[in-house]
């Protein structure tokens, strides 16, 4: 056998070993539908965030999310089904975690909060995720117009929205969510905490399994 064959062969075998090892490690780390075993309970400030469901609910599901994040939009059907299926047993809390690489993540969060001031956070939340692909590629001015149009469609007071979006109250709220998220070790979106335990989800459908297990 030629020396070059030996060298290249050895490198290839080494790479294969690393690859197989990596895949095994990855599949072990993701064992179970939703990995919550071993995750420690984080102290989350449940007084903050937009909530659906009773404060005395047995299960509290917190999501750190970004309206411009495609994965968050992909997770939305699973999250919505939980909000609908367990209105009394589960309290769902939405916290903002706009990522720096998303130009309008923070602006969208501010519009949702402004809509929330007029009692329509969840309607705005739903519309923002539904239309994500329509506004993600717009210019800054066009995106702001797009968001204003949605608030208009929802029958909200446009002047109030414009005034509140850049107001200190809403900006401070988003900042406080970001700070708490970072302190909790959130580094990607969506990140879910189920009764304070960070979830590692392989598929978003596993969210339902994790919630129903917690309700048992």
């Amino acid at each position: 056998m030629k020396t070059e064959t030996k060298i290249l062969g050895a490198i290839l075998i080494g790479t294969l070993v690393l690859l197989v090892g990596g895949i095994l490690l990855l599949s072990r780390g993701n064992s179970g539908p939703a990995g919550i075993e071993g995750a420690s309970v984080s102290q989350i400030d449940y007084s903050k965030g937009q909530k659906i469901g009773s404060d005395s609910a047995k299960v509290k599901l917190v999501e750190f999310s970004d309206f411009q994040c495609p994965a968050c939009a992909a997770a939305e059907p699973s999250v919505r089904s939980i909000r609908i299926s367990y209105p009394d047993q589960v309290q769902f809390i939405y916290r903002h975690f706009p990522l720096p690489q998303h130009a309008f993540g923070r602006v969208a969060a501010a519009y949702a909060e402004a809509a929330g001031e007029q009692g329509k956070f969840w309607e705005m939340h739903e519309r923002l995720f539904e239309t994500q692909s329509e506004w993600s590629g717009l210019s800054k001015k066009e995106a702001a117009e797009f968001f204003l149009k949605i608030t208009g469609d929802l029958g909200l007071d446009e002047n109030k929205i414009k005034e509140q979006v850049n107001g200190n109250t809403i900006q401070a709220k988003i900042d406080s969510d970001l700070v708490e998220g970072r302190n909790l070790g959130v580094n990607s979106t969506p990140t879910f905490f189920l009764n304070g335990r960070k979830l590692t989800l392989q598929r978003f459908e596993d969210l339902n399994t994790a919630v129903s297990n917690a309700l048992k």
């Binding site: 990855l26 994965a71 580094n187 979106t189």
Partner: peptide, 26 residues
């Protein structure tokens, strides 16, 4: 292999072209 790993997890993909990788994956 890196993309294979990223396709297995749910978070955002490290992507120098913004959110393109997430959109393509979704």
């Amino acid at each position: 292999s890196f993309l294979f790993y990223e396709y297995q997890i749910s978070g955002s993909i490290v992507c120098p072209t913004g959110q393109g990788c997430d959109i393509v994956r979704a």
